[in-house]
Amino acid sequence: MPDLASLTAAQRRKAKLLYLNYPNNPTGATATREFYEKAVRFAYDNEIIIVSDAAYAALTFDGETPLSFLSVAGAKDVGVEIHSLSKAYNMTGWRLAFICGNELVVKGFAAVKDNNDSGQFAPIQKAGVYCLQHPEISVKTSLKYSRRHDLLVEVLRSSGFPVTKPKASFYLYAAAPRRIKNGPVFHSAEDFSEYLITEKLISTVPWDDAGAYIRFSVTFPARDAAEERRLMAEIKHRLADVEFIF
């Protein structure tokens, strides 16, 4: 989570918006109520608007419960929250979402949107209504992702990756190895991600913005838990002939 206290007075005066994203993409990190409380005080003190991107908020597991920024006292006075049906309801590509919170910020966003695009296709809106009336869809999806994370963490640890299961989202953020024993050296996460796709046919997303990391995803197609286990066993098999040095 960002260290708000590290910002200088000049930086705080210049800032107009604080953008938060929890559960986080790409790390899968979750925010705490204490952090949100600090963020609200920070926004009050510095006259900054907070935009909380909560696209993954419903996808939590292992005792982690969804936490809305707007549930913190004073949050509705300083910010808004964005929710998407893409993640929690598997409607990726249909671009259906909503924004809520501070009235003036919502009105400002609505004015921009009104001049930027038009309404979504009506049947998609009706599908969205059905989704929001059936939150058990998200619960079922969360259980699936949690189960797949357990499998993926086991496979990656067996190959030497120092990974920890996240408490939310369908991403697993992992440090990229520096090299392979008696093999190639990786100067960046992009190097390693390219190696995985070309040599092992394993698709990942590289992140070199804050160290060398790669992002796995558990959104692969599988009919049931048995097929999930078979796919993970295949990943383990493809990685079994190399020793990664971290």
Rank of each mutant, 00 (worst) to 15 (best):
K236S: 12
N182K: 14
G128I: 02
L7E: 07
A58P: 02
N24R: 09
I48V: 14
R41V: 13
K165F: 04
P2Q: 14
R12G: 04
L201C: 13
D53R: 01
V139E: 12
A110V: 06
K38I: 02
T27N: 11
E234W: 11
F98C: 07
M91A: 04
T141Y: 10
S217Y: 07
I124R: 02
E243G: 08
K113N: 14
D208M: 04
V153S: 02
I180F: 09
R148N: 13
K76Y: 07
K107Q: 14
R41K: 15
P177V: 00
L70N: 04
V185Y: 15
A189Y: 06
F121P: 03
E199K: 12
Q120N: 15
F244W: 03
A111T: 08
A43Q: 07
I245C: 14
D45Q: 15
L85A: 13
E47R: 15
R238D: 00
L172N: 02
I137A: 07
T204Y: 09
A29H: 12
V40P: 04
R33Y: 08
L104C: 10
F109K: 02
H134A: 03
E227R: 11
Y89L: 02
F192M: 07
G128R: 00
E228A: 12
V205H: 11
Y89P: 02
A122M: 12
P66Q: 09
P26D: 06
F61D: 01
Y89H: 05
S146V: 06
K14A: 14
E199P: 00
N90V: 13
Q125V: 15
R230C: 10
M91H: 00
A39W: 04
F61V: 02
E81I: 10
L70I: 09
F98G: 07
T8F: 04
N102P: 01
K113W: 15
D208W: 05
G63W: 06
